[in-house]
Design a protein around this nucleic acid. Structure first.
Lengths: 396, 396
DNA sequence: TCTACTTTCTCCACCATCAGGACAAAGATG
DNA sequence: CATCTTTGTCCTGATGGTGGAGAAAGTAGA
């Protein structure tokens, strides 16, 4: 079961592997244009990579006016596993070396059931994907979990919404089970990396990925690399105060952003509105299901319900308030809004934009796009795969 | 006049120069312990550095149990100029290669008089220092200005409190005048670097330096390097909103932090208190000077005036509110409070600490020191000198 | 079809870098 | 005075890397 995937022997090889990952199959000549190596050196390094089996020859490239060059690509048998553990769901996907998704499964699952149950589930999903024929084994796996992680060890630390996960050796345990290297990170960070690799944040070096879902978190990318902070809790913006002496929050404080616009806060507000008869739509949904969730608000808003739209607008304004502060502080080149916000996307985006453009200084907002994520639920799994590929494609 | 200072030829040499700068004179053997080079290679690189004149031999080191090693130090004739242009003052200092201050001058000066007048003054101060014998010429100069800077070009961009500075080619102009390389940065960034080099932030990789003075700004250090953001405006926290629909601010918005606790806001609040007869101390000072400044509040607070103390406490609480948000987001390993806050230091610090420790999550605050800067007004000039030394001590 | 030109790739000679061993110099220890 | 440790230098061999020559494989035009 254990798969001993080769590793690049030096920085040049690592560089080439990443170029092939990010740019797809490429000719030797074109690779030569992108790296500052002599022809001879390049040939040597490529030969070595061919020997290790990490890359393979792939026919002839189109002529650029002379002799045709040989194409090179990453080994087509390489497989990465991307796992995105959300608060209420698990996403598992298999990608090839270019991080294209070959198979993707989603299942609802409450993260509070604990690491053992969750990983049993996740491993079953991975096995199912493998059985479907998209992969024979995995060369690396990336895992995103909804809480802070001590990154070098791959261990969750003091996760507020994940009782029972504190200190669980995710990396080690899964590495055992899967027989391949495993990297673990906060789910927001891997989503940010996903959007960076294949989504709206390509070619942006400093940006924020704000995820609005059950919780509210933020991936911070500095110079193209995820910034994790001293304890791995950077980007934990859900408990920034938006109202002095405001609503009590589960964290023990008052007035936190999540107390107003987290998944459960939104659901509660909606239920109140339904009970008080302010919204027929929401009331109908409440009767149907017995309780309301964030997605009910999204559905009602899409259907034009005024109260639901107001809830989203108000939440967007509050989120925008926080983001405005972060924009002033961080001066990013892009802000991406993501998470389980499909549907309520544009109303939310408009509210956030209004607030940020009004509150932050012109120099910081002047050329600042605020956009929705492009990848939706695949952002996480692609980012997870990328995390592990970054590790694999670095000198041993 | 132009001084052609040599530059290191490669990364090894740059590394050695920085070790000598940060650790002072050192023996060849000890340097060898700190870098991963073979003895032969090390000897070659040191010989080359000796040839360029950047370092000189400095006698014999103490024995470590065997043959005594030869000491090496940075050329004692190297001189850096550090200039810290504040909103209301200019600091100019000369340092040696180890960034020890050899001479330091301060003069009041309103930055609004424009770059020409300000630099005339600064150059006169530099000339005075040179005349006093501490330097014959400068090998590099670092300039801090109170506003955002497009760092690679060394040009202020859209500085709010510095009309007339927008686009002024500071780097080029001063490089001409001084005949040496010049680096320009935001003054908060250089103060952060100063505390990092010689103050409380030694050995911390990720930290925030919050400067409270005429304006309120924040230096952001990520992985030991200053983070400047996409437009060089990162750390501009003075205009983060602390009160919805709050006081109008000079920036055009409402409720900004600076509208409550910037230098002029503090002065105005104090004047109001004096006029309304709430504080005899402040009233007396107002009678004396005709107007009040932030330092009057500091003085009154030191003398025990209750109103002044309240003003500082309230400002500290508001600042703490903002910092709490930044701590959640950035998860720094240290927060340094600096600026012209001498005197009101501990009251302020207590208020900030209370607020941050109450509002931020335990994981982020658990091991987070919040301390006053160690260097006071020399932080800026040392940081400025360090900025230019970083540039000079990098491969050409 | 033939010639001239371009691009790609390999081979090779040559240079620079660097590690590590041998050894000498200089001092500590007893 | 003998032995051990540390430091510094010299030398050799290995490795890494550059760039030229030239073959291979193609295009373009006459």
């Amino acid at each position: 079961m254990r798969r001993m995937t080769a590793r690049p022997a030096n920085a040049h090889q690592a560089r080439l592997l990443r170029l092939l990952r990010d740019g797809g199959p490429n000719s030797r000549a074109q690779l030569g244009d992108q790296v500052e190596l002599s022809r001879s050196k390049l040939a040597v390094e490529i030969d070595r990579l061919l020997q290790t089996g990490l890359v393979v020859a792939d026919g002839l490239a189109a002529s650029r006016g002379g002799r045709r060059s040989h194409n090179i690509r990453l080994a087509p048998s390489l497989r990465f596993l991307g796992v995105d553990i959300g608060a209420t769901s698990i996403d598992v996907a298999v990608t090839n070396a270019e991080l294209e998704v070959l198979g993707h499964l989603t299942q609802p699952m409450d993260v509070r059931e604990g690491p053992v149950a969750v990983f049993e589930q996740a491993l079953a999903m991975a096995a199912k994907l493998r059985a479907s024929g998209v992969a024979e084994g995995f060369d690396g796996a990336g895992i995103g979990v909804p809480g802070p992680v001590r990154f070098p060890e791959g261990v969750p630390v003091a996760p507020p919404i994940m009782p029972g996960w504190d200190g669980f050796p995710v990396r080690e345990a899964l590495s055992q089970e899967l027989g391949c290297p495993v990297m673990v990170d906060n789910d927001v960070n891997i989503m940010a990396q996903g959007e960076q690799h294949a989504g709206v944040a390509r070619a942006v070096r400093d940006f924020l990925y704000v995820k609005i879902g059950t919780g509210i978190g933020c991936g911070v990318v500095v110079g193209g690399e995820v910034y994790r902070g001293t304890n791995g809790s950077a980007g934990d913006i859900g408990h920034i105060q938006v109202e002095v002496d405001g609503r009590p929050c589960a964290c023990g404080n008052r007035g936190c952003l999540e107390a107003y616009f987290g998944g459960s806060a939104l659901a509660r507000d909606a239920e109140n509105a339904a009970r008080e008869g302010r919204s027929a739509q929401l009331a109908a949904r409440l009767d149907e299901g017995g309780e309301l969730a964030a997605r009910d608000v999204a559905a009602a808003a899409t259907a034009g319900d005024a109260v639901a739209l107001d809830l989203i607008r108000e939440g967007g304004t509050r989120t925008g308030q926080v983001i405005a502060g972060l924009v002033s502080f961080f001066n990013p080149g892009l802000v991406v809004i993501g998470g389980g916000v499909t549907g309520l996307g544009h109303t939310l985006l408009a509210a956030i934009r209004t607030q940020v453009y009004r509150q932050s200084l012109p120099l910081a907002t002047g050329n600042l796009p605020i956009v929705l994520g492009e990848l939706g639920p695949t952002a996480g799994v692609i980012g997870a795969a990328r995390l592990t590929s970054d590790h694999l494609f670095s000198p041993a």
